[in-house]
């Protein structure tokens, strides 16, 4: 009798666990879907890079290892890019304390001062890097702006979004936090 009860409880707990896991995975997938984020067929390592930030310091992708990253490519001449920058800052404000990183790479060939100006204007506190030679842009196969990659804490590419998004939406927060939880 005791064995039968134990078996029932175990099955119930397992079902509950699978259900919770399933609903969490479903919520994660739903968040990606709602944000129009494509998931990779095979997870590959994000191409590494080393770029100057707006303060003149060199920043390496490896510096963020262990954190989920929203990696955004933009340019000062891209209006759609500038429209989504404030939502990226709000996302950073909301999740940076939880270890989520936001990194924006400006691909302007010149006008470093204009990138600095926009960073000041939009009060961007997350790392803003500069790729004047377009090398990193090419390694990430950027064909339109803005383009955003989601990178997992282990450095693998987890998602791709073409075009502007509202990055502080509940779906976006769900998508980023799910990466942190390594789902």
């Amino acid at each position: 009798m005791k064995m039968r009860n134990f078996f029932k409880v175990t099955v119930l707990m397992a079902a509950l666990f699978v259900g919770l896991l399933g609903s969490s995975v479903w919520a994660h997938q739903q968040a990606f879907e709602n944000m129009g984020i494509s998931k990779p067929r095979t997870e590959r390592s994000a191409p590494n890079f080393s770029l100057q930030n707006i303060h003149g310091e060199m920043v390496n992708l490896e510096d963020f290892r262990g954190k989920p990253i929203l990696l955004n490519f933009w340019a000062t001449w891209c209006e759609a890019c500038k429209e989504e920058l404030p939502s990226m800052q709000r996302l950073y404000d909301a999740l940076s304390s939880q270890g989520v990183e936001v990194v924006a790479i400006a691909i302007d060939r010149k006008n470093f001062d204009r990138i600095q100006k926009y960073a000041r204007e939009y009060k961007l506190t997350f790392p803003v890097l500069w790729d004047p030679d377009q090398k990193v842009r090419r390694h990430y196969f950027i064909m339109g702006l803005p383009t955003t990659y989601l990178i997992g804490p282990e450095g693998k590419l987890k998602g791709f979004a073409s075009g502007a998004r509202v990055w502080d939406s509940p779906d976006s927060i769900q998508a980023l936090t799910s990466l942190k939880n390594k789902l």
Partner: peptide, 15 residues
Amino acid sequence: SRRHKGFKPPKELGF
């Protein structure tokens, strides 16, 4: 148009 559906993610990076 790409502005309707966006760019396709790159195959070269596993997408």
